[in-house]
């Protein structure tokens, strides 16, 4: 019974497929959100689930993180606007 089932199941497993990975999902999606995101997810999960834990301090960390992202890109944006005004106006 079980071997028969296994056999049947094996039969439907395609041994070779003509699969275009780009059609399924462009590489950047799994690469950035699946792989490169992992260290960030781990750190954040560690903050909130690991021990010792203090919600206030974790929140502080998150705030700092987000503030820095904003400051980095905001600062860059301001810089580009200055460059535009001075040279590409």
């Amino acid at each position: 019974m079980i071997p028969a089932l296994l056999n049947a199941a094996l039969g439907v497993v395609p041994l070779a497929t003509k699969l275009d990975p780009w059609e399924v999902m462009p590489p950047g999606i799994w690469l950035i959100f699946g792989v490169i995101g992992l260290p960030v997810y781990i750190a954040f999960l560690g903050w909130f689930l690991g021990k010792p834990r203090q919600l206030k301090t974790s929140a502080l960390g998150v705030t700092l993180f987000l503030t820095l992202v904003t400051a980095l890109w905001g600062g860059l944006f301001a810089t580009t606007l200055v460059i535009r005004a001075m040279f590409f106006g």
């Binding site: 260290p39 960030v40 781990i42 750190a43 560690g46 010792p52 301090t57 960390g61």
Partner: peptide, 16 residues
């Protein structure tokens, strides 16, 4: 707590 948080961050960065 901070000690532990930066440990987690270090772990993340060493992979990243």
């Amino acid at each position: 707590v901070i000690e532990r948080m930066v440990w987690w961050l270090a772990l993340g960065i060493i992979v990243l």
